[in-house]
């Protein structure tokens, strides 16, 4: 098998047999029919993933849909420092801060909305977060809804562990 760029790259000189074209046509046909026959008899080796029945396996580090971490009492770990929404290149995190009743914790997010349609899944928010409150480790990649407002998810949704991608 020749993969030498000089021989087959742009502007390469073709030899006489190659310029005749006919022989090369049959060589090409031979290659494609080899693929066809192999794929008919070894259908299982095809790299295609039959998606709805079979789900692709992504790495543990895959950045899926966000979630908000909870404290032991179930309240969000987030202190509404705005680091994530500042870091966000897509400007999709909208936080409204409020004073926390506990004086050791300064603030908490009254509202924490993420526009999933704007999100680019870059992961900068979880990098920026100083208290590990936002994570993208859910592995959820099927983010589907039948209207645009449903992609605008709120704090309760992000805190809820049960929501499995369905909006």
């Amino acid at each position: 098998m020749r993969t030498n760029g000089k021989q087959h790259g742009y502007g390469a000189e073709m030899n006489f047999r190659e310029r005749l074209y006919v022989g090369e046509v049959f060589r090409g046909l031979w290659i494609t029919i080899k693929h066809l026959v192999r794929n008919i008899f070894y259908m299982k080796d095809m790299p295609t993933v039959q998606y709805p029945e079979v789900k692709p396996q992504y790495s543990d580090r895959f950045r899926g849909r966000h979630r908000l971490m909870q404290r032991d009492d179930g309240s969000p770990r987030c202190v509404a420092c705005m680091m994530c929404s500042t870091a966000c290149p897509a400007d999709c995190i909208h936080i409204t801060a409020a004073e926390h009743p506990d004086p050791t914790i300064e603030k908490f997010p009254e509202k924490f909305d993420i526009d999933l349609l704007r999100c680019v899944y870059c992961g900068l928010c979880e990098e920026a977060c100083p208290c590990d409150a936002i994570r993208m480790d859910t592995g959820i990649y099927e983010i589907v809804a039948d209207s645009r407002d449903k992609f605008f998810v709120n704090k309760e949704f992000l805190l809820n562990d049960e929501t499995n991608g369905t909006l």
């Binding site: 494609t32 029919i33 693929h35 066809l36 794929n39 008919i40 259908m43 095809m46 790299p47 295609t48 039959q50």
Partner: peptide, 10 residues
């Protein structure tokens, strides 16, 4: 189907 098989698709 033929094109898919030739291109290693299903």
């Amino acid at each position: 189907k033929g094109s898919a098989m030739i291109q290693d698709r299903i």
